[in-house]
Each structure stands twice: as C-alpha cells, then as structure tokens.
Nucleic acid binder design. Structure first.
Lengths: 156, 156
DNA sequence: GGACATGACGTTACTTTATAACATCGTGCC
DNA sequence: GGCACGATGTTATAAAGTAACGTCATGTCC
C-alpha cells in the first residue's frame, strides 16, 4: 500500500462491507467485534492481538483481557473479515471479504505492510502440486517476505 | 510420508548430509546441534522447540534451558538443515539441504506430517505475481493445510 | 410477557512459545 | 600459553495463546 492514501476511507469501507456481510449471513457483528475490526484496520500492517488489546484498553480506560480480543478475532477470521498472518502472529484486515480467499500475502520487511493478493496462478500451481501428490487442500497459506516497491525506492 | 518406511535411514541420511554440508561450509555442527537435528528428524512431523527440549532433558537427565534449543535451531535453520513451519510454531528436517529452498510444505491435519515439496510452478507463480506488483521476493513461505493421501484413505 | 435457550462477554488463572542480558566454557590460532 | 571468538550455561522475563467457569444479553416460543 502506498503511504499516501486516504486510509480513513479504507476503514470506513471495511466496516460498511463487514456490516453488510454479517447482516446477510445473520452473523452478529457486535460493538466489540466492530471495534476490534476497526483497530485491525487502523493500518495495513498486521497487528498483534496484544497491540489491539492495548488500544482497546486505552480507549476504554479499563483493561480488557486477552481472551476478549482473541474471541473477537476468531469471529472476524471465521467471517473472512480478517486474516491471520502466521509468520507474524498478527492479524490484518481482509481487502475483499465475501470473495474467495486464497490467503496470499506480500509482506514487506521494510514498512511492515501486508498486501493481500489473489493470484490465480499461485492458487492453481498449489492445487496442481497437491493433486499430483494425492494431497487434498483445505487451506493454503502463502506469505511472501520481501520488499515492496515503495521501500525499494526509498530504502532506509 | 508413508507410515511404512525405514525412518532410521532418514535420520542417518540427514545427519550424514548435514555433516558433509557443514564441513564444506566451515560451519560447526557441534554435538548439541547434531543432537537437536537428530531430534527434529525423529519423525516427519514438525516438532515444537519445547518438545525437543523435553527429549533433550530426558536423555541427558539434566534439564536444558529453552535458549539452548532455540540457539541450536537457529543455527540449523540458517544452514538450511531444518525449516520452521510458521503456522505450527514448529520445526521439521529439510528433505534436501544444499539445494535451493523454496519452503513449500503440505501439512496434513490428520497425521501431522509435513511433506516438503519444491514445485517450480508454485515458485514461478509467486515470482510472477510479486514482480507484477513491483515486490522483491526475499523469502516465500507456502504452507498448505489439508489431508495427505494416506489419511484420506484411512480416516479416523 | 415470562421462561428458556443460546451465544457473547467477563474474570481468573495458566500454558506455550520466545527472547534479553550476562557469565562461562572451549576450541583454534598465533 | 595466551588471546579471540564463537558456543553454551543461567536466570529472568516477555509475548502469544488457552482453559474453565460465571454472568449477561438477545431472541424465541408458548
């Protein structure tokens, strides 16, 4: 993600789509869950559960328990509104909830952004490789570490 | 991996190759590191650092510290002798050390085995997808969850 | 509208995974 | 032999995640 974009729009947009999707599915996007989703979306960088917890506690004044956040995250992941980045133990908002999720990410070592992509070639190649070995794919995970365009151009 | 194979051979083989590679590189495969490598290879299932630690402590009688194991694992991963499975927080022996590692795994939810593959189509697809977005790949991670052939045939 | 079922949230305690900081040991090199 | 450097030991602590159980809210059924 470019450093220059109207991120407020990203957040608002994500929340709107989440509301719509949950309403459609009869899933309960409670105030807490909405709040956690908002905090996950506070950047395009994957955020740890405890970072979110801290935000939550600061805003409310009262300290929330880890489980509070983990449960909300679990719900959001189940609904496909948030993805977990395994290699970072962190969570990031889904760019396109509702669509099929192949769970592919370009994770920048420079700025920390995780760009979600859905490249059919990658998905196809994984399916083919698995099929040849008689392996039934349930959940592919692709997390590519490297440097995003902007960080290559502006190294630190 | 099939449940029926001469696993002793796998271990011996892995150790032999590790010795050779380290000698070639001037890397020091100490007794401890060799030991940890052996324990990682005790199955084709990824093993957690603390599981290895436990084995180590049991065999030696004296309790080793976590850092002992983590440092050995760090060395082994650096040398490409062991891979870390991010989605499991666990480590597994590398099937083909010395070769280029694309870090692709088929992780079975049934038996827990992690089969390392190196499918050029997957690597190529990732490279292409990244290149189109101006992303410079440093370390791709592919961890596919699913069911291996044997577990599909013999469900529990 | 009240009893009930179900799911969401709170609380406490705990487990698992991982690292920091610093001391000591061991091996090779000159 | 003494030095340098990397490997290992030790202690303490951080970070990430879960179990068990209780309470509260929401909606449903009669």
């Amino acid at each position: 993600m470019s450093a220059l974009h109207d991120h407020t729009h990203c957040i608002a947009d994500a929340l709107t789509r989440a509301e719509a999707l949950c309403a459609e599915r009869g899933a309960r996007l409670t105030a807490l869950r909405r709040r956690v989703l908002e905090l996950v979306w506070s950047s395009h960088r994957p955020r740890g559960a405890y970072a979110i917890l801290e935000d939550l506690s600061q805003q409310d004044g009262k300290a929330a328990a880890p489980l509070t956040v983990y449960r909300a995250l679990e719900f959001l992941v189940e609904q496909g509104l948030v993805h977990r980045i395994e290699s970072l133990n962190a969570y990031v908002g889904c760019a396109d909830p509702g669509a099929v999720h192949s769970g592919q990410f370009l994770v920048c070592e420079g700025c920390g952004d995780a760009a979600e992509i859905d490249d059919p070639r990658v998905g196809t190649a994984i399916d083919a490789a698995a099929a040849e070995r008689g392996f039934r794919v349930q959940r592919p995970t692709v997390e590519v570490r490297g440097l995003c365009k902007s960080c290559q151009e502006n190294p630190r």
